[in-house]
Computed example of a mutant assay.
Amino acid sequence: MKKNWRNETHEAWVEDIINNGYDTVGVIKFDNGRYIKPKQALALYKAYWHKVDRTLFGCAADKGYGVQRWCFSELGADDRNLHLHFVAKSPFDTDAFCAVLNGLWSDFHVRTAHSSYNWITPIQHRSKAAAYTAKSTKQFKCDKIGLGNCFQPSPDLTHDTFDAAAQARRITNRLTDEQFEQAFFQLKRQIAETDKRLTHRQSRA
């Protein structure tokens, strides 16, 4: 019964991710997830997502605007390497959004991983991405770090009236050209690697 409950919980998360328009999947890491305390990790992740929302939406973040996302913390195969999985909806071009997220995290704190170690890409295979991102829910435990970083805006809010030029200025004020180019380079590498993995799995099947 316990195992079935865990599977049903995971399947419900996967269904939500698949059916609600998420287009971005990511993993953001620390320089060494084995040597960071959960309390510090929670504080850094919350501060990061606050910075993302303020960068992308400016003062409108105070009115309930923000990146729509579900977040799930994990400890890795050895149960010690703390990191965060997420799915999100991009408020503008998805590739550029992925690069901005990676660039902002990689330069956020001395403990945050370089852009080459994080993994943030457009969703290329919806069901596989959903299952992988939410896999920690099979453990059926309270995920304070994940829950503390989720955000679901009111459905009444729309991005249609946002000033794209002002948004771009806020991004360039936070990221140098070099940081953005490095994050974009990693994005293209990760997309190619994901394509390669999917093709390999399909050929084996």
Rank of each mutant, 00 (worst) to 15 (best):
L56R: 07
H114N: 15
A88N: 05
I36C: 04
H159C: 11
D107S: 15
F184W: 07
N4Y: 07
I17C: 04
V14W: 00
V52R: 01
K29Y: 00
A61D: 12
R197T: 13
A192I: 08
L147T: 12
W13K: 01
A99Q: 06
S73D: 13
A183W: 00
R111S: 11
Q68T: 11
R201I: 06
K63Q: 13
V14I: 06
R174P: 00
D78Q: 14
A164N: 13
Y65S: 04
L42K: 14
W49F: 15
W70G: 02
H125W: 10
I191G: 04
F30N: 03
L82C: 09
S106W: 01
D160L: 09
K63P: 00
K135T: 03
E193D: 14
I145S: 08
G21L: 02
H85V: 02
D79N: 13
I17F: 02
S127H: 11
D79L: 11
R111F: 09
N149E: 06
C59H: 10
R170G: 06
A129V: 03
R189Q: 15
D107Q: 13
R169S: 14
S90H: 05
H10Y: 02
S127P: 00
R54Y: 07
S106C: 04
D79M: 08
H85T: 05
F151G: 05
W49P: 00
E193I: 00
R111V: 02
I36M: 05
Q124V: 01
I123L: 08
S203E: 15
S154D: 15
R170N: 11
D143K: 08
A129H: 05
D62T: 07
R170M: 08
D78T: 10
T121S: 09
H85E: 07
D53L: 04
A113Q: 07
K128W: 08
S115F: 00
T24A: 10
L157G: 08
A41V: 02
E74Y: 00
S136K: 10
T137A: 05
S203C: 03
